[in-house]
Design a protein around this nucleic acid. Structure first.
Lengths: 197, 197
DNA sequence: TAAATTTGCTAACGAACGTTAGGTTGTGTA
DNA sequence: TACACAACCTAACGTTCGTTAGCAAATTTA
């Protein structure tokens, strides 16, 4: 089932379908992407896809929750070392940017297409997102208590930080002039110290 | 056709349709909102809508370009007075936030649903967006030259600022504890001076 | 070599889609 | 009073949608 040619991992057919679907979901949106569009991109008939997946929504579900896992894993790693709130926030930002830039297409789906999930997946997803935001809120909270940050509202600050980060997937390209690490550094700099000289 | 009861302006049927459609487009997305959904929300039959509009896309087009006008008008007013780059940026941010908060539903459509426009509307819209971003870029550029700002990349800074602003529509509610003016002030503070104490 | 699995096909289903045609009703205007 | 028009209706169109049934070929596993 799994074969490896040299360094290149070969995807299962199901993974190929998910990858192709993810690209379409990013560029056209989930609702505007038909199973026939997906089949066409894969070079097969729409009905053939159902040899590998149960439904269209299963693809969306897998992409959304797989990315949620990735974001949590990255944040776990970033928070594994004790440090000041400033450094922890910098690490959390860097981790978030890494996940975003390493898979811009799945990130776009994760950020925008989750609302097409039906219940109870929809609620489960939102609960995960809340938990993720709460982790950032905790860092900000600690930073305020330690006197590192001055912020009018914790929740407001977190939403502003995350929304500044979550635009990256629309313009980031691996061949661009900024590396993911540089993007993270610049964002940390802007968010922590502002534009002012 | 137009009647006014006291202080309350009565909308034409076409405006009612657009308003209802905008709300649905925000909550479900353009592609996932059917004409029958819209008709149902209006309490009429789907076919009846075509007495007032030419097509589903006409609604999207009108909302997108009307909001583009609003953003440009607000920015024009914000930039009408000469001042330092810092003050001009603060005013531009405040103007943008005002438009966003005064019509969160149309803003959401403007920000997310434009990609369902067909050509040549799609290209026209993107050209307008570029022009809008360029206005912000010019402020940042001037701020750097005057020594007011220190920024690694102008375009990067503008995208980060706008993406931080453009999340507001997802959580802003008129009855919330922050007024649009306070939101704008807090955002200016965060973006210009950062989180750091 | 036989069996099981993977991968794909054609044909078709019922439902939902945007939209059109043609008609009815009520309301304000000439 | 006659007329225009706005607002909405029913019925239906052609198309596209996600999905299922049933089958065939190729490939992998036992």
């Amino acid at each position: 089932m799994f074969v490896t040619y040299g360094m290149e991992a070969v995807l299962t057919r199901k993974e190929q379908i998910e990858k192709t679907a993810t690209a379409l979901f990013k560029s056209k949106g989930y609702a505007a992407t038909s199973m026939r569009d997906l089949a066409n991109a894969l070079g097969i008939e729409a009905a053939s896809i159902y040899s590998h997946i149960r439904s269209k929504e299963e693809i969306l579900q897998r992409v959304c929750f797989k990315m949620a896992d990735e974001f949590f894993d990255a944040l776990d790693a970033a928070e594994s070392m004790e440090s000041t709130a400033t450094v922890r926030l910098q690490r959390a930002i860097a981790a978030h940017v890494q996940v975003l830039t390493q898979n811009t297409e799945a990130s776009a789906v994760f950020l925008h297409e989750w609302r097409h999930l039906s219940e109870p997946l929809h609620s489960n997803f939102l609960a995960l997102r809340d938990k993720y935001e709460a982790r950032f809120r905790e860092i900000i909270h600690e930073g305020i208590q330690r006197g590192e940050f001055t912020v009018p509202d914790e929740k407001f600050a977190v939403l502003t930080i995350l929304s500044a980060l979550n635009w990256i997937h629309t313009w980031y390209k691996p061949e661009g002039k900024m590396t993911p690490t540089e993007i993270a550094e610049n964002l940390s700099e802007m968010l922590l110290n502002g534009l002012r000289s």
